[in-house]
Amino acid sequence: MTQTMMFAGFAALMLAAPAMAEITVTDAYVRSAMPGAPTGAAFMVIENTGPEPDRLIDVRSDVAAKVELHTHLDQGGGVMKMVHVEEGFALPAGDVHRLARGGDHVMFMGLKQPLVQGETVTVTLVFEKAGERVVEIPVDLDRQESHGMMQHGMTPSN
């Protein structure tokens, strides 16, 4: 009888445990606007394939003095302002959140060394529910995207 009670208790604990978000990261790359720039950014596709919502709440890397989650806000008149997103990025269950140029991204400020084409940068993504995920992201200085392209401090040209 004791074994049956222990099994029932274990089963109850397993059923009571919260469902965890299941996170995948694809199409990641890191770049800087120009060789020797003091800043860089990482872009990627983050998918929450789990049944529960989650949130990317922090990011860390040894590649720079400061690493933050950023986005661009339209200030009107063709001016975009880059801002730190302290609350992070929501990841609804079964949804994708794209970190892309001109939008949400990981910002590296005070690069400790130049970003070199073909090398990788180690980044730790911190999720509210899924915990920490360490990803190795390739440096791709040549990658071009036709949508949402804006360089920091630049306004769109006509």
Rank of each mutant, 00 (worst) to 15 (best):
Y29Q: 01
M34Q: 02
E52L: 03
Q117T: 12
F127W: 10
H70V: 13
G76T: 07
Q113G: 08
T49V: 11
E86M: 07
D74A: 12
L111W: 05
L115Y: 13
D62F: 09
L15F: 07
T122R: 14
V134T: 15
L73Y: 10
M14I: 04
A11N: 11
N48S: 07
Q75K: 14
G148H: 09
I23Y: 02
P138W: 06
F10W: 09
K66F: 10
G131S: 11
V96A: 12
T4K: 06
P18C: 00
G118A: 15
D74H: 13
L141K: 05
E47D: 12
G76W: 06
T26S: 15
L125V: 06
K66S: 13
E22V: 14
E132D: 15
D54C: 09
K81Q: 11
I46D: 02
G103N: 03
A42V: 00
G76I: 05
V85K: 03
E68Q: 14
V85G: 00
A17D: 01
A21M: 05
E132W: 00
V59M: 04
G76M: 04
S157F: 07
V116Y: 05
G103C: 00
R133H: 12
L99E: 01
Q144M: 12
G78M: 08
F10Y: 12
R143E: 03
A100Y: 05
T26L: 01
A17G: 02
V30S: 05
N158V: 06
M154V: 14
Q117W: 13
P51S: 14
V121W: 08
A93E: 13
E47P: 02
V25C: 01
L125G: 02
G118L: 05
P51C: 00
V79R: 15
E119M: 08
G118D: 15
V59H: 08
K66W: 08
F108N: 10
D140H: 05
R133M: 13
S61A: 12
V59L: 03
A16E: 00
G110P: 10
Q75N: 09
Q151M: 14
M80K: 11
F89C: 04
I46C: 03
P92G: 09
V135C: 00
L99V: 09
E136K: 15
G148N: 07
A42S: 11
S157E: 11
I23P: 01
A130Q: 10
D104G: 05
T49G: 15
D142Y: 01
M44L: 04
H72N: 13
D140M: 08
P138E: 04
E132Q: 15
E86G: 13
M14P: 01
I23M: 08
A19T: 08
V134I: 14
T26P: 01
